[in-house]
Simulated assay, not measured.
Amino acid sequence: MTVKGHIIFTIASSVLIQHFIFSNIMYHDDWWRIIPVSIVTCLLPDIDNPQSILGRKIKILSYLINKIFGHRGFTHSLLSVLVFSFIIFSINLKLNCVFDVKLGLIIGYCSHIVADILTPSGVPLLWPYKKKFKLPLITKKFLKEDIFCYLYLIFSLYLLYPICNNIIMKFFY
């Protein structure tokens, strides 16, 4: 998946996760903090590819991770999500919106992995077990990446419509 695809997919995923999972414990305006933070980490799993945007910025680390685990290895697994989540939640920040920030970081990382599952290459979710999990909805023949990601974004925003409508009504009336 391309950088643009991952970013669009992450934005849509952030909106849906905040709305359907965390809407009871968070205010609806919190997703304005979650989205930018999730974008920051949506490319992090590709640190294992020295040709990726992040890999080109941190060449030595990217090269080492690639040599040890390969591309779409450990960094695209549930184990990496657990390690990343543990690191994120063990960092003690003194911010008012620390939960939003940590949640956004994890959403960005996880959305990357889910997006890669939707490609024909798949990901080794149960790494070090090598089997790749895939649900190839995004292919060059069936559904192109850009079209899929934009449809997903439109769908996620459409599901927000009642909330947006309520906010607009409260603002104007």
Rank of each mutant, 00 (worst) to 15 (best):
K102G: 05
V101N: 10
K57F: 12
I168G: 00
F22M: 04
L157H: 06
I138G: 01
N49A: 13
K59W: 02
L43Q: 15
L118V: 08
N66L: 00
I47A: 05
V98Q: 12
V3E: 15
I107Q: 07
F20Q: 11
F74Y: 13
V98N: 13
Y173E: 13
I87T: 08
K102V: 04
V101A: 01
Y63V: 03
L159A: 08
S62K: 11
L160D: 01
D46A: 02
N49W: 00
S62E: 05
T75Q: 07
N92Q: 14
N165R: 12
V114Q: 01
V37T: 12
N49G: 00
M169T: 12
P36M: 04
F89P: 02
C149I: 00
N66M: 00
F89N: 10
I17C: 07
L105Y: 01
Y129W: 09
L157W: 05
G73E: 13
C110D: 02
L54D: 07
F69K: 05
V40L: 15
L143C: 14
I107R: 09
G73H: 04
I107K: 11
F171D: 05
I117Q: 05
G5E: 05
I106C: 14
N166I: 10
M26T: 07
K57Q: 11
L151G: 08
C164R: 05
H112W: 03
F9S: 14
E145D: 10
I168E: 04
V101H: 08
K102W: 01
C149Q: 14
A12R: 13
K67I: 01
S62V: 08
V98R: 00
A12L: 10
R72C: 06
P162A: 09
L79N: 06
H112V: 01
V98G: 02
H76R: 09
I21P: 00
I11K: 03
V114D: 03
Y129G: 04
K131A: 13
L126R: 03
I87Q: 09
I39Y: 03
I65G: 10
F99P: 01
H71S: 06
S38N: 03
N92T: 12
P162R: 06
D100K: 13
P50S: 07
S90L: 08
T2K: 06
G108M: 03
W127T: 04
I167T: 14
P128R: 02
L151W: 11
I88L: 13
S80E: 02
M26R: 14
S52Q: 07
V83M: 12
T41Y: 05
I154P: 02
S85T: 12
F74H: 05
F22N: 01
D46W: 02
M26V: 01
I60M: 14
I8D: 07
L61V: 15
C149W: 09
K134R: 14
I167F: 07
V15R: 04
K4G: 11
L78S: 10
I87L: 15
K141E: 15
